[in-house]
Design a protein around this nucleic acid. Structure first.
Lengths: 262, 262
DNA sequence: AACTAAGTTCCATTATTTGGAAATAGGGGT
DNA sequence: ACCCCTATTTCCAAATAATGGAACTTAGTT
């Protein structure tokens, strides 16, 4: 037995299709989905109809395209409230961002990737769309490395196996060996840096958020650009960053926030 | 024809269960769900397992509780990007919020309710998902009334039939008749006010966002409290509010934003 | 009108879901 | 330790829903 891979009957298939639409990221036509999809025409068609009925997708008559439905936005609000660290961490992040005057990110590990669940940007609002819900690579971001460094070996291997090691910049770590070495250093120092590994000019200092039992429940970072800060000057935020992470970890414990196992 | 009720096979049932968990808003035990649910024990159990497998739900071993999964947060980001007015409206809202220095909300009608898809709060920093994804009543909010006022009769009846007419404050409109009268005035003036109808002390001025063909695609509001503004002083924002709404409507047209039919 | 590509429906076959009932796991309490 | 009560999980034959190849419809082209 062992349905090792995916596949919970029809529901699994439907969510699969939903994911495909999500990943494409823009309105898609039926025929376009059909080309990628592993499901036969009639099946795919019916799955799409069902998802439409359920408001998980919306359909544009004129363009004949499908896209994700607003119902998801609605549900996600509930999910964010009840499943992310964000509501718990909120006051601490506000305070940290006020004090340091830089962009602060709160993230969690989700399926080997970094899922940003909150963000504070004290200065300008413009830049990008909201970060909550956005995902990024774990192996080349500050929060990602900070969280990985404190995983137990089993979880770590699982997460590492999901890394793409794509070379975003000249500084991106592109091998498991180099990554593991870096993680050892990070664990020793309690702090991770992103040295322009994901985006040119963007650097950050980051720490894991640990539960009372020492398990990783999230990550916190202060981000800046090399036009404003050097790695050394980011260092100065270390005490405040660690303090905030610790406070969030404590608070999470008080709220029974689950120890995850990604 | 007309599958009047709900029910797209198993997928529908699974999403139903997901909704139930979402609506409860906090981690739930199996037995607790079972009491509310229309599905028999074994069925409910398997649906929950499937949703767990798919990361739509997460399970807390110690507490034996289910809650919404992070996958939803992730998907919602994609949904927000591709299905809401927010990305299109972003620059216009930034500008409006800068100019007026007050809280600005962007909303859409979703299933008879107001779904907030973006928010700017010039004073305190952005707390993204704390508002995006939030829903509110249509009959007693500025954006809700502004949008309703410009619906065609068919859509309007549908939306009105979904209103609860709960009396939140002394000023809440609690009958269809009174609401329809108010909507007529709003349509004439092109602007709606929330006169503490939803929350005491909170007032707002609001306008619909219309497509080129005059169909409602969203709503925009400037919110304040009676401690700071009177209705008369909110009036002063009318030209800017209308202008911004118009610009967003135009831009949406350029991007082929679909005319919805709520 | 004939051709083509895209989208939709049909329906006999097959695979999944169903749900009552029984088994199992967890607590207390005595 | 034992029993009892409750909550959760598993089983399995019957019932139902999903499947997908093929046929059909629609819209756009030559």
């Amino acid at each position: 037995m062992a349905a090792e891979k995916r596949g919970d009957g029809t529901v699994g298939k439907a969510l699969d299709v939903l994911n495909e639409v999500a990943e494409i990221g823009s309105p898609v036509r039926f025929s376009s989905l059909l080309k990628t999809s592993k499901y036969p025409k009639a099946t795919l068609y019916r799955l799409l109809q069902t998802l439409l009925n359920q408001d998980m997708l919306s359909y544009n008559d004129e363009e004949q395209t499908y896209k994700l439905g607003l119902k998801l936005v609605r549900m996600a609000h509930a999910a964010w409230l009840q499943s992310s660290l964000a509501p718990i961490a909120l006051p601490f992040i506000d305070e940290l961002s006020d004090k340091v005057g830089e962009t602060v990110h709160l993230a969690q590990l989700d399926n080997g990737q970094v899922l940003y669940v909150d963000k504070r940007n004290p200065s300008s609002p413009i830049e990008m769309y909201s970060q909550a819900g956005k995902v990024g690579p774990a192996y080349c971001t500050g929060v990602g490395k900070a969280m990985m460094a404190f995983l137990d070996e089993e979880s770590l291997s699982r997460v590492i196996s999901k890394q793409a090691f794509f070379k975003y910049t000249d500084f991106t770590i592109t091998s498991e060996k180099a990554l593991r070495k870096e993680l050892t250093t990070i664990k020793k120092q309690g702090i991770a840096f992103d040295k322009q590994e994901h985006e040119v000019k963007i650097i950050c200092i980051s720490s894991p958020i640990l539960s009372a039992k020492g398990r990783v429940i999230g990550g916190l970072s202060i981000t800046s650009s090399i036009d404003i800060h050097s790695l050394e000057s980011l260092q100065e935020f270390k005490p405040q960053l660690l303090k905030t992470s610790e406070l969030i970890g404590k608070e999470a414990g008080a709220w029974n926030f689950p120890e995850q196992n990604n």
